[in-house]
């Protein structure tokens, strides 16, 4: 129960972070070029990819990890 709630809370936090990072006005802070590539292009795809990676970590990895964590805290 606790685990499920924690996972949900993390996802909501991720949603908030993604919404802020991928929208103006934060978006408009990025401009110009980086290594000859448009910086905004790199920024958007970078943040997007990161967001996906974290969703993946939370939604795929968390049940197993959480179990281990439970075990850890039990033995401590």
């Amino acid at each position: 129960m606790l685990r499920r709630t924690a996972r949900r809370d993390r996802m909501v936090g991720l949603f908030a972070a993604g919404t802020i990072l991928l929208n103006p006005p934060i978006l408009n802070l990025v401009g110009g070029t980086l290594f000859g590539w448009p910086a905004l292009y790199l920024y958007l795809f970078g943040v997007w990819g990161l967001l996906i990676a974290v969703i993946g970590l939370i939604s795929e990895g968390s049940p197993g990890q959480a179990n281990e964590r439970d075990k850890d805290s039990a033995s401590r």
Binding site: M11, V12, F15, W48, I55
Partner: peptide
């Protein structure tokens, strides 16, 4: 320019809320 992207960022954000 890049403003075709929100159409795909929106679903990504929606999927952040997927578990709920």
């Amino acid at each position: 320019g890049l403003d075709f992207l929100p159409i795909y960022l929106g679903p990504t954000l929606a999927f952040c809320l997927g578990p709920i």
